[in-house]
Amino acid sequence: MTSEPDSTMTPPSLKSKSPFRLISNFLYRHSCLATGFLLLLPVLWLVVVYLGSLGTMMIQSFYTYDHNTTQVLAEFSLDAYKEAFTDPILSPPNKDVIKRTVRMAGAVTIAAAIVAFPLAYYMARYAGPKMKGALYLGVMLPLWSSYLVRVYSWKLILAKDGVMTWFLSKLGLMPVLDWLLGIEGIGGKSLSTSYIGVFLVFLYVWLPYMVLPINAALERVPKSLTEASSDLGARPWYTFLRVILPLSFPGVVAGSIFTFSLTLGDYIIPNVIGTSSYFLGTLVNVERGTLGNWPLASVLTVVPVVIMMVYLSVAKRLGAFDAL
């Protein structure tokens, strides 16, 4: 019901001739219609813009791409799926990219959980009101400045002649850095052109999205439960392991949804930092933006959608949505 409280107290004048009055009278008597009008915009948005674009993408993934003229033909085929997964010549680089991206997203998510949990724990349990405010501000502050500027400044921080190297050399930690960069598979020529660099920047950029849900979950764990646990003779670490962690774990899963999906889709960080190897986002960007290969780009977008659907159904079972 959308009728206003004051209108129930003073019934609208049915004799008024003003067109506004007529319309509002009409809607008053047909309150379903009024609700319908109110919902029109959000529903249109959800159906047309949100589901519509998703549906168009799904349909496009079955279109045919003519490699020689680089034109998309509206003819049904599975070519794009073959190009992404089964074609012996064309698919291996694409599959590499998918694997690389999923691994990176997994690593970033796990690391973010490990870094964020103690911080969120401190914020929720120990920090005084002033400290808490400062920490919230510290976590949120990066979100208020331009993402692009932050990523480019990380390129300068991680550069071979950059701040990070200078700092490490002052501390005498250069051998550690050289050892890290020498590791096969994740190392590189400098921090800014290695997977380690990409990993660090992803971790930095998505950390707030992990801290906040964990913090929210921890805030909701009643103090009485931990007290009860210790009254019953549990040592602190046992209380943590059997009471606090299980109760706050949905928060970790909720945060991991953000970090995992955001890493899967990002196309800016691998463009600026890293080995020049493609990630899903950058590959989609190239296939669509520069080659005009919409079908393959759509298939490559369906991949994270499917991955996230599996991920979300597991997360749901773990109770992540109770923490949101």
């Binding site: 064309l90 680089p93 590499d96 080995t275 190897s277 493609y278 590959l283």
Partner: peptide, 10 residues
């Protein structure tokens, strides 16, 4: 395709 592969170390 092949150049994307080479960039990825293939």
């Amino acid at each position: 395709t092949n150049y994307i592969g080479i960039l990825g170390g293939r």
